[in-house]
Amino acid sequence: MADVKVADKKSTISFGKKERRLLTDPLDSNNPITVQVLGICSALAVTTGMKNALVMAIAVIAVTAMSNFITSLLRNYIPKQVRMIVQLVIIATLVTIVELVLKAYAFDSYKQLSVFIGLIITNCIVMGRLEAFAMANDPYRSLLDGIGNGLGYGIILLAVAFFRELLGKGSLFDFKIIGNTAEYLVNTTTTPWLSWYANNNLMVLFPSAMFVIGVLIWVHRAWNKSLVDVS
């Protein structure tokens, strides 16, 4: 008992170098999608448009951060045998809340994301960070770790959605940029030297997300050479 008291005294709420690394590591060297191989399922289906990707990223950041926080608060009281079920119940409750909030405030995004909001429960990032970090660390740092990993996930999601939407539909955030009707910023019918341009419809289909992420991993690991062959 005395050991636990000493450990709690040492964990103060400060924002030093270690805490900053909890937020920035998942953006680059410990990225959940490209390095840890987590959270890939939902990263593929929701990246057809940047608006949906942004909504999904915010939902995952919220769920990861809050579930990390709550599990870390409860970590000394969860019996070992039912550990997984307790974690799943915490995550499921949070995801249900997020789903209801989305249904109320962002209904068209909710309609398009449909099944994949529920699949945040099985999003390996949430479970993975619970097991790897929240079960062994204090609530403040677990919260930071959750936010960091959510941000890392969100960046990859937005990057994939950027390419898929720009090349596939010619728009960004539903703001039409390049195409062949009058509303577009760069109108391919009135600009004669661009009249050959047509949207790449492959980018709207599911497999293109795989190609984009594969190339992203290629670029990331060529830039950060320490990550080659890590998974």
Partner: peptide, 16 residues
């Protein structure tokens, strides 16, 4: 290619 080995290649294969 070295940066594409392992995970990156798996993504491209799954896409195909």
């Amino acid at each position: 290619p070295a940066p594409l080995r392992g995970l990156g290649m798996a993504f491209l294969l799954t896409g195909l």
